[in-house]
Design a protein around this nucleic acid. Structure first.
Length: 271
DNA sequence: CCGGACGCCTGTCGGC
DNA sequence: TGCCGACAGGCGTCCG
């Protein structure tokens, strides 16, 4: 379940291997992802030069000398850099063969992800244009966030996971940030004080930065590009810890469903 | 415009 | 042992 830190970890791991490489060949084994891989995809990529690799929210963008490859890892996707002759296995849907004799392999058992080539500017791309500001930039600040909370009727956890308000925060980091700020996930967002929203913004930035520094959170099959796990899982306070003791007060943690997603919290520490 | 429900997928796990 | 439902969850879409 890649959230922003996992996607950023992937980007950083991939960057030195792909920058300035020519795409010699693209092999697609399964076109049926969240959005079908277009039949022209291979031709659109082949012989192009990868100028750089950037990230917007949880999307990766391989910027080519013409257009860009837009990629989303969905729920179960990951990318690896491998020697060019590495045999493919089940769920290895796309290989991008590079001029340095490495390949970038996109694997995604549940196929919630997407990969396609575009040449329209990012800011008008339908999947990107409505996204909230990047959480690690000054555009995502307490002034912006407090105002967004004030005008919403949703509970705070839903606000944190709404990509029109905050990007990059999924179910793991939403739960962690709320726990660390002592805010109950079912609080109405509009009830948050200026001070609480200020602290929550700071906390989101801090948690995302720490998770990136640790190489992301390894859950189930998430791995970095070189196949190593992330280590943020060791830092989790609530995610997946239902009925275990709260790390602050030692009382058992509670679980509820918010938007059909399990949400673990401490009924004693979070208000 | 807003919020809530739903569907897309497959692998894993717990219960019977 | 084997089957089956629940769950994992990002996110676009649909509906009221």
């Amino acid at each position: 379940m890649p959230e922003l830190p996992e996607v950023e970890t992937t980007r950083q791991g991939l960057l030195p291997h792909v920058t300035h490489q020519t795409i010699d060949k693209v092999i697609v084994r399964n076109r049926s992802l969240r959005y079908p891989i277009e039949s022209r995809f291979e031709a659109q990529c082949e012989q192009r030069i990868i100028q750089t690799l950037t990230r917007r929210s949880k999307y990766l963008l391989f910027e080519l000398d013409q257009g860009y490859v837009l990629l989303h890892l969905g729920m179960s996707g990951h990318l690896r850099v491998l020697p060019i002759d590495t045999a493919a296995e089940k769920h290895d849907h796309v290989d991008i063969l590079l001029s340095n004799k490495l390949l970038v392999r996109y694997t995604d058992p549940r196929r919630f992800g997407m990969i396609n080539w575009f040449d329209i500017p990012y800011h008008i791309h339908p999947l990107l244009r409505k996204l909230a500001p990047e959480p690690l930039t000054p555009a995502f600040n307490s002034h912006y966030f407090y105002k967004a909370c004030q005008t919403k009727k949703k509970v705070i956890k839903k606000v944190l996971m709404d990509s029109h308000i905050v990007v990059g925060v999924g179910n793991i980091y939403a739960q962690e940030c709320l726990f660390l700020e002592g805010i109950h996930p079912n609080r109405k967002a509009s009830d948050l004080s200026i001070d609480e929203s200020k602290r929550l913004v700071k906390r989101i930035k801090q948690v995302l930065k720490k998770a990136i520094a640790k190489g992301g959170t390894t859950l189930k099959d998430f791995k970095n590009v070189d196949g190593k796990p992330g280590y943020f899982s060791q830092t989790l306070h609530v995610y997946g810890r239902n009925t275990l003791p709260c790390t602050t007060c030692q009382r058992p943690l509670d679980k509820c469903l918010i938007d059909n997603r399990s949400t673990v919290y401490c009924a004693y520490c979070q208000h």
